[in-house]
């Protein structure tokens, strides 16, 4: 329970109030010309970064907002001071 996450609405809170929403992969691509592989890349494939990554979280037991933060996967700690809006 040691992870804390800074919600843009509610501030720094216990990490277990939040739901992880995946690596930040950018907005939904347009459907035209989408191949099975490129779609699969968007939906399923992950970079599995060992270090700081930009990722989505939802304050599910709080205000319900979705937002991005930077977090270090080697320490399980939010990295603050990086810009946090997408």
């Amino acid at each position: 329970m040691a992870l804390t996450i800074t919600c843009p609405v509610c501030g720094k809170r216990n990490g277990y109030e939040f739901r992880y929403g995946g690596e930040d992969k950018g907005p939904r691509p347009v459907e035209e010309g989408m191949t099975p592989r490129s779609w699969c890349d968007y939906v399923h494939m992950n970079a599995c970064v060992a270090g700081v990554q930009k990722e989505w979280w939802c304050h599910k037991n709080g205000c319900g907002a979705w937002f991005t933060i930077h977090r270090n996967t080697l320490t399980n700690l939010e990295v603050e001071g990086v810009e946090v809006t997408s």
Binding site: M1, A2, Y16, Y20, E55, R71, L74, N76
Partner: peptide, 14 residues
């Protein structure tokens, strides 16, 4: 399992 990616092998009080 905590449902977010990690390479740490840290346990949790939770």
């Amino acid at each position: 399992m905590d449902q977010w990616p990690n390479y740490t092998t840290l346990t949790t009080a939770h």
